[in-house]
């Protein structure tokens, strides 16, 4: 395992020179006989050297120089043990030591990275083309409008539907704009249409999924799994939303994007859990029940017999008696 020494510009952080430390001792100074020659008047001719200490760790030793060695913690140091990332000032020159085996992030793909701004774009898949995306955004807007129209019974339903669709669009524009600005900062690319498309697609999926759940609750009101399913699906959608945005706003790997998405969902779950824990649920005299009714022909609605309903009521009584007993204590 060899160490790399970098000569860094103290203000800009730009690396001016890199050298591999192949052989020890490794001399550092202003004279030309050194392994690393520093053109700095505050550096001695023979200023310092890299050696191995008794444990086999790399250290930098001062050779009786005028200005000695300095780190962010110590001035006038004479001997400093070096780990990967260590920074030592010699005279007015900043040296950084790095392990050659230090892990690196993956390379930025050309068509997404900073280079893309200057290089010719790579081949685009059909759904990545802006006109296609704009068409899909328009389609989701129409879908939202129609859905909103079906979701009310007022005479002015069409106006309400239009208002709602435009409201959703406005929120999506603000959301996509935020992501686009983040993408501009991270990758140098704005990609507003891509983010808007993602937002609209996620909103549409959430609404359609809500419809499926509502139908499920209508047809199978005693199915306890639907609530859980709905929660899991919404969290999955949230994870996907974040991962999808990150694909257009970061250089993260696919696994990294999904990790970020799941972290966001996990945080939401934890926050909801914390609120549920802290919130003192007030007494309510308003009952909660599944009131959803859908327009379905009688033939497809699964029904129970009256005795089955009565049996459910007997169970209900046990629950209520339990509530009564719990409060009595």
């Amino acid at each position: 395992m060899a160490m790399i020494v970098e000569v860094v510009h103290p203000r800009t952080g730009e690396v001016r020179q890199r050298l591999r430390v192949d052989a020890l001792p490794f001399a550092i100074g202003r004279s030309l006989e050194n392994a690393l020659i520093l053109d700095d008047p505050h550096v001695d001719a023979r200023h310092a050297r890299l050696v191995e200490d008794e444990d086999g760790s790399l250290v930098i030793e001062d050779l009786g120089s005028v200005n000695k060695l300095a780190t962010s913690m110590h001035r006038d140091a004479e001997r400093i043990r070096l780990r990967s990332g260590a920074e030592v000032t010699v005279g007015r020159t900043l040296l950084r030591f790095r392990d050659e085996a230090e892990p690196l992030p993956p390379a930025l793909p050309l068509h997404r990275g900073l280079a893309a701004a200057h290089a010719s774009p790579g081949p685009q898949r059909w759904h990545e083309r802006t006109p296609v995306r704009l068409a899909l955004i328009a389609a989701t807007l129409v879908l939202l409008g129609v859905h909103a129209w079906f979701d009310n019974y007022a005479r002015a339903g069409a106006t309400d539907a239009l208002t709602l669709a435009l409201g959703v669009l406005l929120v999506a524009v603000v959301w996509a704009g935020t992501w686009a600005i983040a993408a501009r900062a991270a990758l140098g690319q704005f990609r507003f249409v891509a983010h808007l498309f993602i937002a609209m697609a996620a909103a549409t999926l959430a609404i359609l999924f809500g419809d499926v759940i509502a139908w499920g609750q209508f047809l199978m009101p005693d199915n306890g799994v639907l609530g859980t399913l709905s929660a899991v699906a919404n969290l999955a959608l949230l994870s996907a939303l974040v991962a999808w945005h990150l694909a257009n706003a970061s250089a993260l790997s696919r696994a990294g994007r999904w990790r970020a998405g799941l972290t966001v969902s996990g945080t939401v779950v934890v926050l909801i859990g914390l609120f549920a824990l802290v919130e003192d649920k007030p007494f309510s005299d308003v009952p909660e029940f599944s009131s959803v009714i859908r327009n379905a022909p009688a033939a497809i609605i699964p029904t129970k017999t009256v005795p089955e309903f009565t049996a459910a009521i007997v169970e209900l009584r046990a629950d209520v008696d339990e509530l009564r007993a719990a409060k009595d204590e």
């Binding site: 009952p287 029940f289 699964p302 017999t305 009521i313 209900l316 409060k327």
Partner: peptide, 25 residues
């Protein structure tokens, strides 16, 4: 107590209906 409710789709004499019973003690 709070209300507790149970919901079923029930059929009587061929008429399907949604039935909710809410109960409190």
């Amino acid at each position: 107590t709070r209300w507790k409710c149970t919901t079923r789709n029930v059929a009587t004499a061929g008429t399907p209906m949604r039935a909710v019973l809410c109960l409190r003690a």
